[in-house]
Design a binder for these strands. Structure first.
Lengths: 197, 197, 197, 197
DNA sequence: GATGAATGAGATTTCATTCAT
DNA sequence: AATGAATGAAATCTCATTCAT
């Protein structure tokens, strides 16, 4: 049963692999179909267009990551602790599904196709921004940094670490991933912390 | 005179504008030619292919930025001061040539075929990494962060700020740019500084 | 049914007509598609490129002729009789499919990129060579001619007669074709025959 | 002095080499210029077009060969002896200028560009045809072969031997060339000879 | 005469999308 | 639901020819 829904997921998972490997523009619809082991036209049966496939990946998969981030915001902890949690969530997503993360990282900020329609992305930034703002109110984060700017820096640093892993320019074994977590937290979150001085 | 080299630059400058406005994939060679005010085939006279145009932009324009970064390394100042200089150089490049920065930011991650050949980028990372390592030796930067990882975080944060400007998600008036400089320096370089505690 | 294979043949047959009429270089892929009554891209669906279409013509159509030649070799007859059979087969191919012969004659020498891959042609020469060599062993053919050289002369004479027909420089009505058969046999095969003197 | 005429010959000689190596269609005008060591545009200064270059090669170089053939016709000897002379002239031309012969052989019969304008080629055939016809009148050549057909067969056999040399499929050392002469004469001219029977 | 940059028509090829089965 | 042949617009690239210097 749910064969229909299974097929959909099967194609979506294949799309993640193919888009991650070749980039969205370079990937052909036929590559996705072949990777999924289904007929050419079936991609169009389930999704209306190539764009729609990418959008579905973003909406459905990115959502998983974003809802995790949203959960971090709900925690009763202090802002720095919430930021730490966000860093951990994002970096660990790499371990769970590197292809997905690779795709999100590569295409998300840059896809003219998508941007307008997907405010989920904006929500991630908004979420980070809110956490920072709250921290500034609480007095746990330095107040001389624009909250939105802080969110961008944090996202950028995370993205680049992921990119380093994606492109094999940074070691990505378990130890390195664990160390990266500590280092990003120490540097970024540390850099945002308000100090006694 | 040097008409030949001028023509080359003329086409390259047009390519930067067109690629920045439309994205590399979406831009047609004819658009570049028209923007440069030359005939279709002349682009192929100077560059062998559309790809080669992009590569030339990367190699030649990106090089200008990177050599500026390299100069920062030559300064006799302390590592944190050198890092501050790098941040200023990169962020100010936006003011000087937004189209170029927009292009570099948008396409560099997307072009797998370019990346390999362009070690200039690798050199920028190496430069940053060396500065950080020296700072750790001097005792001016915290030693519990891998130098290469630190370079990635710094680069990523800078890139994302630029991206924010490119996509209009961050304010980019003169004041905002000046403030961004202070904030990135405060957060990132600050986060890497060794503390008395 | 077998619609797929039919379509392939349909395009191939159209290609033979178009290439024969205009020459390979002058013919456009669109001409082939139009002649076949199919869309532009379908040619690329079945064959990967314009070159591949020509190669397919050579391999598949030329093969039919060559296998006929190979059959001549299997006959139990004497070498001169086998050579006569070969002459008849080749000259009659003109009557059966002038366009094909026109194409083969015009393009085969011109296509250096094709030649290497097509050993079918080499096999035709080898076949002729073997027949001649056997005739020399049998004592039915003169022994003071290199067998391979004899094969080349025979092939060349046949090709030129076909070329004469193709280009309208030799009469090609039924009588002329019948006469040509006798004359080529009389001259070439006769010239190779061992004589009592 | 005659610098002008020298330049012309220099370009023509380069064209022979380039056309022979790549084929006329595949060769680019720039290749000819580079091979000649002159500027691109100079080819157009001396010859009006790419076609005109080929035509000049045919007219001027082919003429040398044809006039030699014409001389054979003037000899007072019998037809078979004249044919032998023609065979020798053609095969020895290979030794003198293989590239030229390669070009003539490859393109002459097949160039749609040229054919109409160049009746020199027709004259070669006409010359051969006349020799054969005279031989039939004299009673030295068999009368049951159409004279024009005989000319075609002879030309074709010669062409294929040359092609064999061109493509390296037949040995072309001095001994082989000498043997080829005897063999072609023995077979072709022998095949056309009238016999006592 | 000599140069080679400049032109642009025209060719091949790609690939998202449609649609008959 | 599933298939994959069929379509054709649109892109890249080639190269003979022109022309200003």
């Amino acid at each position: 049963m749910t064969t229909t829904e299974d097929r959909r997921r099967q194609i979506l998972a294949a799309a993640v692999r193919v888009f991650a490997a070749q980039g969205y523009e370079a990937a052909r619809v036929g590559d996705v179909a072949k990777e999924a082991g289904v007929a050419y036209g079936l991609v169009y049966h389930y999704f209306g267009s190539k764009d729609a496939v990418l959008e579905a990946v973003f909406r459905e998969q990115w959502g998983r990551l974003l809802s995790a981030v949203a959960l971090a915001e709900e925690t009763g902890e202090t802002a720095p602790e919430q930021l730490e949690l966000v860093v951990k969530i994002v970096l660990r997503a790499w371990r769970d599904d590197p292809n997905l993360v690779r795709l999100l990282v590569r295409e998300i900020t840059r896809s003219p196709h998508i941007q307008d329609e997907l405010d989920e992305i904006g929500q991630a930034f908004a979420s980070l921004e809110r956490i920072v703002a709250r921290g500034q109110d609480e007095g746990t984060l330095r107040a001389d940094v624009d909250a939105r700017m802080a969110a961008f820096m944090l996202y950028g640093a995370l993205e680049e670490v992921l990119t380093g892993w994606v492109l094999g320019q940074l070691p990505d074994d378990a130890d390195a991933v664990a160390a990266a977590e500590r280092e990003v937290i120490g540097t970024l979150v540390g850099g945002l912390r308000r100090r006694a001085d």
